[in-house]
Nucleic acid binder design. Structure first.
Lengths: 200, 200, 200, 200
DNA sequence: GATGAATGAGCATTCATTCAT
DNA sequence: AATGAATGAATGCTCATTCAT
């Protein structure tokens, strides 16, 4: 895995260049947090994350003013990856397939990374930066959806928020529903439901 | 709302009929817990529940030996209601409509009662009683589903666990997705996806 | 075992005759408490005692205003038995043997009944009645000791409080020092120390 | 009194040298605990100890993961002192005098420090470290005893565990038996009992 | 009198966050 | 900048005691 923070100067003040060792620490923390949030969810103590990262708690707090902030930063990484993926798929031939692929992949990731699900479950505690990324994701996703709708592959009576919700729901439930096959079936139902033209 | 404990002698030992005042307290606690779990989730302190119920903490603990136990009791009430509803619907003419009605209602309820969602999200904390009720629900649900499948209204490649999962997911997400219309749209997609014959 | 309360009208108000069933309850409580204090010490919850006695907590409190009071009542029974024994032995031929027998028996009992030890360990929380019994025990014991000293079997430079202390100490330690033999050896040392004429 | 932690790097992990301020706090906590356990026994709330030490509860828990752990640490300090003393005495000319001196001193200390007594009274809560120190004490004590037995100053039919028990018992009782003279008399009896050749 | 439900102060322990080193 | 020690509010739970039934 390459540096998790490639596209930013750091989580707190995005404009002051961090010293090399500081950036290294931010990275270690993010990586540890990623891992531990992914497996244990938000419940994990900060001390544990610091321990795993091999730094002191103070260091964690220097870079992330709050546990929530760290959590969001972790998810941000994933959100960004999703944005990339959505953008990449938005040029595809088959607009329907592109949307369904995206949805499938998203769910598959979330099944493995509990924090993504947790994040999606969070309500109103987003800061601005976060909101921006979420907006980007929404935007990229909307493109995917509209192309699919325009192409007639997806019903017209739903909006992107609806699809997002359905996907989130599936994410939240999928990791409890052991096995890859089960997940696929869930995705299958959702996708078919989207494809279907509304029951008159 | 009528007494929450109509069909049981009390949460702990179903054997000795509770004194009238005790019954009243159990009810007050359950109601407070219901409300507060629904809005705040599992995180609320027991003291808060006791306060809202107008009883001492000790009273809560007398009836529910553990916070988890209280939580489960709260959900049990809902689960039982669901079982009733599922059973009632399983005699309906139109098997497909019955299933879809059940699903819709369930989601509508869960939107208002966040604890149901939380419960469904809980993993391994089931005690036996709990498991039994969940089993009953699963059973009743299965009847509903099979009848719908036999009648050709629902695809054959999914099992009741799948549907349960989809419904749960929708529940979890629906309350964040304000508005009755939005919820209906989600349910619509799910139901159409279930109705659809799998995309080859 | 016959009624534990033969020589009293009840622990609280020694002068109002108790109804038969009340006395029966006092007895049940005392017996349960005896057993449970003996094995678990003072730490046991009152509820547990009530449960074992087959009565409600309220009943326990009706007869014993306080946990301490119950505890003392239990020990009183034992203390009284000790008084009897001491008196019985004070007429014996061999005054030295009588004293040593008493001491041995006392320790042996205490090894089995933790509460006796606990009680002996209690400091200043005795009520009057209690003090009286303790006084009697002290008195009876003093007789035993003086006779042994007069007979030349026990050194003169110690008082009954000293012996009591030594015995208590041995009690407290003896139950941790598994085995009958070990206990005997401890008693042996103490008795020989008492017999010995002080090291000049 | 000098630093309580002279011979150790700290209670938890003997591996990393504690920061000066941390060391100071550990000391304050130990001293407060010592004092308060000595006067009130194990029953004192941790908060009280923290208050007296002038630190927050969290600090106590940082250094001692458990109330029991703190208690043991307190006693450990004393046990270690005893080990030292026993070792120092084991080279003395007069083996009998050495043993009796040790016993006397131990009791005199325990009279003032009730926690020692409490500790000795504890049953099965020994962790390994603790067991080791107790073992050392036993060992050092055994040397003292054997030398005295070989020299003919102490009877042969008892083992070090017996003597320990007798001493403990005396400790437990001695502080209730106010006055230096009384304590001396108790010790006198014990020592004479040990010296005595068993009564046939 | 008996019962056991209710009470609530009390306690051990955790953990996010701050701050001295 | 980094560290990790200190803090203390918060929480789940227990149990002696009181009181309505």
């Amino acid at each position: 895995m390459t540096s998790v923070t490639t596209s930013t100067n750091g989580p707190r003040e995005a404009h002051r260049p961090l010293r090399a060792d500081a950036r290294r620490n931010v990275d270690k923390v993010l990586r540890a947090a990623e891992e531990v949030f992914a497996t244990e969810g938000l419940a994990v103590p900060i001390d544990e994350i610091a321990r795993r990262a091999g730094v002191g708690v103070g260091t964690v707090y220097r870079h992330f003013p709050t546990k929530q902030a760290l959590f969001q930063a972790v998810v941000m990484v994933r959100l960004k990856a999703l944005v990339e993926r959505a953008k990449a798929l938005s040029g595809a031939e088959d607009a329907g397939a592109a949307l369904f692929t995206f949805v499938s992949e998203l769910v598959e990731v979330a099944v493995k990374k509990r924090d993504l699900t947790d994040e999606l479950a969070q309500e109103g505690l987003d800061d601005e930066v976060h909101a921006v990324v979420k907006g980007e994701l929404q935007g990229a996703f909307e493109v995917l959806l509209q192309r699919a709708q325009v192409g007639g592959c997806v019903r017209d009576d739903i909006c992107s928020a609806d699809v997002t919700a359905l996907v989130m729901g599936t994410c939240m439930v999928a990791d409890r529903h052991a096995g890859h096959d089960a997940t696929s079936r869930l995705i299958g139902v959702i996708c078919d439901g989207l494809r279907a033209h509304p029951h008159q």
